[in-house]
């Protein structure tokens, strides 16, 4: 109840002007999304992943043998900048999709569940704009979540461990500033990787008025895709799964820089955007909005 009041309170000036400007709707959507306690809690949890990793490694007296544990974990003690990479590998299969599922699943179904959806749709042609705004909010969350992970990893790594030139997978060494640039590149790669799942979440969210159902379904879709990705009998399907290139950011840590998988991943995610965007559009514009 109280949260729905807060939501209405957050948009008072927007409602009358919405037909003239979609930007103010976008602004209010973003401010509502990022001021929500749930979003802040998820971002804090994302930031905690590298912190937990780094603290655990720092407190442990036992040195890891090379190749033991998650990738790069054995390098962390020598160079704090590896914390962010390890955290990304750890977070991408489950935790990041989980947060995306919560945000994207909530987009339409959340408004419908609270009964605020019909107020948002007073204006004609408002539905397409609302979908776009909701998707933009979810996509922005992907970017903010991965950047949070990267930045908190870099900070905790620099605080707890020595920082120096970074050794790439190829054995070549790059400077600290170049490694920070590569970290940002990895963050953008992961952001792009999650865009397809966000659109799937948006589509599922248009199917139901129960936000929890949409969130759970989105998370289930991401888990199922990753399970399919390890079944060898389905190898023909693997390149078409939206999760197939999720760990492909290793290519950004090779020398010379290999942007091939970045491009392939982007094209794949675009295909998912197109398909599920069209499905979400058709479903949403034909939907009977009762609440």
């Amino acid at each position: 109840m109280s949260s729905s009041d807060v939501r209405r309170g957050a948009r008072p000036s927007v409602m009358p002007k919405r037909s003239s400007s979609g930007w103010s709707l976008l602004g209010s959507e973003i401010s509502v999304l990022f001021r929500r306690r749930r979003t802040c809690a998820m971002l804090a949890a994302v930031a905690l992943i590298p912190i937990l990793l780094a603290v655990a490694v720092r407190l442990s007296s036992e040195a890891l043998a090379p190749g033991e544990g998650p990738p790069f974990l054995d390098r962390v003690t020598q160079n704090g900048l590896f914390v962010g990479f390890t955290a990304m590998v750890v977070a991408i299969p489950l935790f990041l999709p989980l947060t995306i599922g919560v945000v994207a699943g909530d987009t339409i179904a959340g408004e419908a569940g609270l009964g605020t959806l019909r107020y948002l749709l007073v204006a004609p042609a408002g539905r397409v704009r609302l979908l776009l705004v909701k998707y933009a909010g979810a996509a922005l969350f992907c970017l903010v979540a991965t950047l949070t992970l990267t930045v908190s990893g870099a900070i905790i790594g620099a605080v707890l461990f020595p920082v120096g030139p970074v050794t790439l997978l190829s054995g070549d060494t790059i400077s600290v500033s170049e490694s920070l640039a590569r970290s940002l590149l990895v963050a953008s790669y992961v952001t792009v990787s999650l865009l397809g799942l966000s659109m799937i979440g948006l589509f599922i969210s248009t199917l139901t008025d129960v936000p929890v159902g949409a969130m759970a379904a989105t998370i289930v879709v991401s888990v199922v895709a990753q399970i399919l990705d390890v079944i060898p009998q389905l190898s023909w399907l693997h390149p078409w799964l939206f999760s197939h290139y999720w760990l492909g950011f290793a290519d950004l840590l090779r020398q010379p820089l290999d942007l091939g998988s970045f491009g392939q991943n982007a094209i794949l995610q675009l295909c998912y955007l197109a398909i599920f965007g069209a499905l979400a559009y058709s479903r949403f514009v034909t939907k009977d909005i009762l609440s």
Binding site: P66, G67, P71, D74, R75, V89, T167, L169, S170, G171, L247, A250, D251, R254
Partner: peptide, 25 residues
């Protein structure tokens, strides 16, 4: 190119280097 790792063989004149990133050797 391995998953999250790489093995390199570099030949330059009279030097040959083998590098395995998974063992950092």
């Amino acid at each position: 190119k391995d998953r999250m790792a790489e093995r390199d063989v570099v030949h330059n004149g009279s030097d040959v280097w083998l590098y395995d990133s998974s063992t950092n050797a």
